[in-house]
Simulated scan of single mutants.
Amino acid sequence: MQISDREAIRQFLEVLAVEDGAARNTLLAYGSDLRAASELLDGCLISAGEAGLQRLGAEWMALSRTSVARKSSVLRRFFAFLEAEGLRADDPSDALPRPTTQRALPRTLGHGDIAKLFVALDERLRDRGDSLTLRLIALVELLYGSGLRATELVSLPRHALRGDQPFLILRGKGGRERLVPISDRARAAVAEWARHVPADQVFLFPSGKSHLSRVRLFQLLRELAAEAGIAPQRISPHVLRHAFATHLLEGGADLRALQTMLGHADIATTQIYTHVNSAHLVELVNSRHPLMDGAGGRKPVPETQG
């Protein structure tokens, strides 16, 4: 007996949560897209054919290419699930639109801007020297020094960093665990701040009965940017995470190692996220390529002996 769209969507989301470890926000977004598609097809999404999916494509015409690509991707996964579970005999998803999208490169900050932020932090520490300044220093050191996501950072447990342990283990998106190296600077900054955190607190950055919010973190960074002479709209926790990745890659970090540190499931995400400017690539080839002499000239190719 054929089940309803509602039940099929529930089962699909359950599989994503259990088998793929999909994050809560991902499940909410997928569920919203699928229920909207079901409503457009009068509750007959599970049995939709080519004509029905073309109708969806027509309904999505006014949306951005990114939105259409996302909705199509969700439905393709849904129909693949239906076929795999024997809930329908075929997969009609080829009829869904395939808009070409170009993923925008994330914003970042140059080395000079990062230096300005730390100068502003030093000045604030010298002028005030209060615990809130120590907290902000620890937050920025962990954002830029370890590439943590905002949610990961603000929700760190009180004893996430232990003694001289130069790393911590995080559970990030999709429930995936990863090892994150922590610099000596960041560990020292956290140790200074931790002295001001009551021993009975659950979180390293407590606020009220919970932890510091992402919104407050965003506000603190914008205040710091203004003090450093940087346009506040240029900075966010994600921008500092991207600066961490970009600067490591420019310094010669291995892309696979960077993927692990950032917690990306797909290295393609890392490749987009950690763009390197073309000037640096040219410099890298000229200085590191085995056939270049380091000054832009060619080395003679060794003759092979026959």
Rank of each mutant, 00 (worst) to 15 (best):
L248K: 05
Q259V: 09
T133P: 01
Q219H: 14
A48R: 09
A194K: 01
F79H: 08
F79I: 07
C44H: 15
T26F: 00
A115S: 13
S72H: 12
D127F: 09
Y144S: 04
Q305N: 13
L96Y: 10
Q102S: 14
A62Q: 15
A245S: 07
R176L: 04
A95V: 00
P157E: 14
P302E: 06
D254A: 04
A115W: 00
L139H: 08
R124K: 12
S213A: 11
D200Y: 00
T66A: 15
T151M: 14
A231E: 15
V301R: 14
M61K: 15
R158M: 05
D90R: 13
E59Q: 12
F218V: 06
L168P: 08
W193C: 06
A279L: 11
Q165T: 15
P198L: 11
R222W: 03
V239E: 01
L63R: 13
N286K: 15
G163C: 04
F118E: 10
G163I: 09
G294Y: 08
A231P: 11
L224W: 10
I182Q: 08
Q271I: 12
L255Y: 09
L136G: 08
V301G: 05
M61Y: 05
Y273W: 03
L284T: 15
L284P: 10
H264Q: 10
L13V: 11
A80S: 14
A48P: 03
A295N: 14
G229Y: 11
R77P: 05
L148N: 06
V197H: 06
E250A: 04
R135W: 06
Y144Q: 07
K209R: 13
P300R: 14
S236C: 01
E283N: 13
S155R: 00
E50Q: 12
A265D: 05
P198F: 01
L82E: 02
L136D: 09
S72Y: 07
R288P: 00
R171W: 10
A226D: 12
G163Q: 09
P237Q: 03
S64T: 12
H111Q: 13
V197A: 02
L134N: 03
R195P: 05
A265M: 02
R124T: 08
A69F: 06
G208F: 11
D90K: 05
A243I: 06
R65S: 03
E303T: 04
